[in-house]
Computed example of a mutant assay.
Amino acid sequence: MHRRTSAFNIVSVVLGLVFLYVPIAILVIYSFNDSKLVAVWGGWSLRWYRALLDDSAILQAAWVSVRIAFMTACLATMLGTLAALALVRMGRFRGRLPFSAMVYAPMVMPEVIIGLALLLLFVAIDIERGMITTTLAHTTLTMCFVTVIVQSRLLAFDWSLEEAAMDLGCPPFRAFLTVTLPLILPAVLAGFMLAFTLSLDDLVIASFTTGPGATTLPIRIYSEVRLGVKPEINAISTLMIAFVAIVVVAASLLTKRYAATERGEARREPS
């Protein structure tokens, strides 16, 4: 039985999409504005993209953010996948409750508290604040999201496939790499992309843990917006939106291609 789509549902969806994407569309359009005043339209132009090439400070901040986000995503994906494996495969082990609480705490804890706590930790152990401390802080924040995504996939995983590989003489680690990891790879990639995006977007935690020479793009934009929005900010924001969109689309296509390949191989296998 098909549910009838009501006018209320359609209007709700349209209003939700407008609320989410109209501000982004306006930002993208005004990044091509020829006027020096960001709120006054002066015609189409690439003027501020050319000016952006001469703004070394904001370009450096963007490059720092991308590097931190990539390192964060790699660390968070590895640690989050291992945590998900421990929670699913080891069952109700001793210390599971505090372990789960520590893994999931950053999801519900205010970022201000996380940033302040990590700042006090780095000061106490005398680590100079910079890219390393920001990466570690972002890994702490994003690892729990990777754990949730990968754990949801592992809960539906058929562990007899891995056991069959080990029965045929495959070592446990190799069985994980050749059997388990390829099957949960879409969830791992989704966790990687989410960690990358959250790190790229973070302002609060980075403001506590960053140092000289490691200013991220959100911090740079926030510091400049307080003095007034420059047209170059619209341009760099549009470029970052395009970059994230391209990465997400590429990851989605890669996942779909991998899933299609797996289905094709399964159909070719003899019954």
Score class of each variant (00 low, 15 high):
2 H>Q: 15
3 R>I: 09
22 V>D: 08
26 I>N: 03
27 L>V: 10
30 Y>S: 04
33 N>E: 00
36 K>S: 14
39 A>M: 13
40 V>Y: 05
40 V>F: 08
48 W>Y: 12
52 L>T: 06
59 L>D: 05
61 A>V: 00
61 A>T: 01
70 F>R: 05
72 T>A: 03
72 T>N: 06
80 G>V: 03
81 T>I: 04
82 L>D: 04
86 A>V: 11
88 V>H: 08
89 R>P: 01
90 M>G: 11
91 G>M: 06
96 R>F: 02
97 L>P: 04
101 A>E: 12
103 V>G: 09
107 M>K: 06
109 M>E: 03
112 V>M: 10
114 I>H: 07
117 A>S: 15
121 L>Y: 12
134 T>G: 10
135 T>I: 13
136 L>F: 09
140 T>D: 06
142 T>S: 15
144 C>H: 10
146 V>C: 07
147 T>H: 09
148 V>F: 01
149 I>E: 11
150 V>Y: 06
153 R>L: 02
156 A>G: 11
158 D>R: 11
163 E>A: 12
168 L>S: 14
169 G>R: 03
174 R>N: 07
174 R>K: 13
175 A>C: 04
183 L>C: 07
185 L>M: 15
186 P>L: 09
186 P>H: 03
190 A>H: 02
202 D>H: 00
202 D>S: 13
202 D>M: 07
204 V>S: 10
204 V>L: 06
206 A>P: 09
208 F>T: 13
208 F>P: 03
211 G>M: 01
212 P>H: 08
213 G>V: 02
213 G>S: 02
215 T>S: 11
219 I>Q: 02
221 I>T: 03
221 I>H: 00
222 Y>A: 12
230 K>E: 14
232 E>N: 14
232 E>I: 10
232 E>Y: 00
234 N>G: 10
235 A>L: 01
238 T>G: 04
239 L>F: 10
240 M>A: 15
243 F>A: 15
243 F>H: 08
244 V>M: 12
246 I>K: 06
251 A>S: 14
252 S>P: 04
253 L>Y: 10
255 T>E: 10
267 R>Q: 11
